[in-house]
Amino acid sequence: MISRDEILGILERYDPEKITVGVLGSHSALDIADGAKEEGLPVLVVAQRGRHKTYAEYFRLRKTRDGITKGFIDEVIVLEKFARIIDVQDELVKRNVIFVPNRSFVVYTGIDRVENDFKVPLFGSRNLLRSEERSEEKSYYWLLEKAGLPYPEPVKPEEIDEVGLVIVKLPHAKKRLERGFFTAASYKEFREKAEKLIKLGVITEEDLARARIERYIIGPVFNFDFFYSPIDGEIELLGIDWRFETSLDGHVRLPAAQQLTLPEWQFEPEYTVTGHASSTLRESLLEKVFDMAEKYVKATQEYYSPGIIGPFTLQTAVDKDLNFYIYDVAPRTGGGTNIHMAMGHPYGNALWRKPMSTGRRVALEIKRAIELDELERVVT
């Protein structure tokens, strides 16, 4: 792990009046870029050829023929592969970039290289990014247990008949950024589905052996988009979102009788996230949610010093008795924050009395840190 002292040494060479917000061109990059622009900070996106036009053309900053300003991305560096971002890190440092990590950055660059080779100051908690990997010994499940937070209990394959419906979590065999999840209500169903999915090339035997199997929580899902400010020492709930997943959402729109007639290659829905929608929560439950966030932040400070910095998302399911279970944690910008760019999050807007998206809140914290001469508190 690159030491924080080394990163702060690099930060000392930055011109605080020329700080640029950098982000990998994927996942939640538009939200980060829009938020930075809203706060008057320049934006640099590192994109991959073949996926660069969103940033280099459609949302780039330019003037129309009659002089109207349009777009919000100042500059784009186009690479042949996202992983080549390591090769341009000196250029990023030269441009005073504070880089905002998203899930795509970690996956495409590789967690080892993010931790050991990427010497650009990150806004957020570099040492927490690995906790998102379920196969790690100290994954977010380990941290949730230390924090005393509720999560779906793990289940062994032979225990499924006793527990009931479970979800099996493992990566997709071909689309490694995506999921090869499936559900089962008995050990027999688990084996039958696993064998079919392996045959279809959706999952592999190796991944199945390392899969996380846990009790399936029957109920609605809510992703809580939080922000922890080291400057204020406070937690903010900015917004709530939920996902559209293919082909799951297509399956649930079919009558049960129709689902039963699907051919083998369509029998099991996939869980590929394709979009998000905004949500709110009944107010009597909000205190429970803040309590979970407080415990999570405290645990990160105890076990992953200096603890969480900036945005994080607790992904939950709520059962019939209104109990929350955290089934995933994003120790960085969540994947659903693009729905609030330009408009802000409902709760963040109410708190700050102006449109406050996650991207804008990140930029605001960077600006405040510059003004208070405390940038070292928000980067790792």
Rank of each mutant, 00 (worst) to 15 (best):
P269V: 06
E302I: 08
K295M: 05
E287Q: 14
T64W: 08
E39S: 08
E137H: 08
H52E: 15
V23L: 02
Y141R: 15
F105I: 03
F105C: 02
N349I: 09
R332L: 09
L165K: 15
S3E: 15
P157F: 00
A211H: 05
A29I: 03
Q315G: 03
T109F: 06
V329G: 08
E75M: 06
G239S: 14
L24D: 04
R51H: 14
Y58C: 02
M1I: 10
Y296E: 05
T272G: 08
R253L: 15
I366V: 10
A194N: 06
G307N: 10
Y228G: 03
E245N: 13
V43Q: 02
I86T: 06
D291R: 14
R113N: 11
R210C: 06
P42D: 02
S305K: 15
T204R: 04
E192W: 03
D5G: 07
R361C: 08
Y216K: 13
K37N: 12
G124P: 01
R191Q: 14
K156H: 08
A369I: 00
L24E: 08
E178M: 12
F118M: 05
R282G: 07
L281D: 06
R360P: 03
T300Q: 11
P311W: 01
F244L: 15
F224L: 13
R210E: 15
Y303H: 15
K70L: 10
Y187Q: 14
Y303M: 03
K63L: 14
L122W: 00
K63Y: 14
I10S: 04
D321M: 09
F226E: 00
G334R: 02
R126L: 06
I366K: 01
P263F: 12
K188T: 11
G310A: 08
K295E: 09
I68A: 11
Y140W: 15
N116I: 07
V252C: 09
L30N: 08
P220N: 10
E294N: 14
E75C: 03
D225V: 07
F324G: 03
L165A: 13
M343H: 12
G334W: 01
K146P: 03
T316C: 13
I203W: 04
S131G: 07
Y271L: 09
E287Y: 10
D225R: 01
P150H: 11
R65D: 10
E189S: 11
W265C: 09
V114H: 04
R212C: 01
K367M: 05
L61I: 04
Q301C: 05
L375G: 01
T316E: 09
V252A: 05
K196S: 13
L61C: 06
T64S: 14
H340R: 11
T280P: 03
R60G: 03
T183N: 10
E374D: 09
I231P: 00
D249F: 05
R368D: 01
R113A: 11
T20Y: 00
V202C: 06
Q315E: 15
